[in-house]
Computed example of a mutant assay.
Amino acid sequence: MLSTFSEVDAAQFDERVALEVGQRLKASARYPAWLDGLTAASGHAPVPLAASTWVVANDADLAAIARAARSASHPAELHHGAAVDGPRFPAYRGPPAVPGGTTGRGRMWTIAGGWRS
């Protein structure tokens, strides 16, 4: 998986987000050709890809990820975990509470621009 935006968090400075997202956008643009080269060299069928990423995080980090995606002209949509097709797991409760910390809310963003197999 190459995820362009999901490494962003609410505690990062805007300049750092811009630098890191810019680097990942360049890597993401090269990813399909790199996979094509691997496929050609291996002689195997290509691995199917979807150009999106599901992210589970707390509200503040989800908002920061969505801002970064939208700043790079990529869509970001909020989905409740119950609305997502696939395996059903117990509701995400986030990490244990720590002083000054936050807990997750079980929400997910689908972000165009990441790659998953």
Rank of each mutant, 00 (worst) to 15 (best):
S6T: 09
S6Y: 03
E7Q: 12
A11C: 10
A11D: 15
A11K: 14
R16E: 15
V17F: 00
A18V: 07
L19P: 00
L19T: 10
E20T: 04
E20W: 04
V21Q: 00
Q23F: 08
K26Y: 03
K26A: 01
A29V: 06
Y31I: 11
P32Q: 11
A33V: 03
T39W: 09
T39A: 12
A40F: 00
A40H: 04
S42Q: 11
H44S: 10
P46T: 02
L49G: 04
A51G: 02
T53C: 02
T53I: 10
W54Q: 03
V55W: 06
V55N: 06
V55Q: 11
A57S: 15
A60Q: 08
D61S: 07
L62M: 05
L62K: 13
A64M: 05
A64W: 05
A64Q: 08
A64V: 05
I65D: 11
R67K: 15
A68S: 08
S71W: 02
A72L: 07
S73P: 00
H74C: 13
H74Q: 09
E77G: 02
E77M: 07
L78V: 14
H80Y: 05
G81C: 05
G81P: 00
A82F: 07
A83C: 09
V84N: 05
V84Y: 01
G86D: 13
G86K: 09
P87E: 13
R88G: 06
P90W: 11
A91E: 03
A91K: 04
Y92I: 13
R93Q: 14
P95L: 15
P96H: 11
T102K: 01
T103W: 07
G104A: 14
G104V: 08
G106D: 09
G106L: 03
G106Q: 09
R107D: 11
W109L: 15
T110Q: 14
I111C: 10
A112D: 11
G113K: 15
G114L: 06
W115P: 03
R116H: 10
S117M: 05
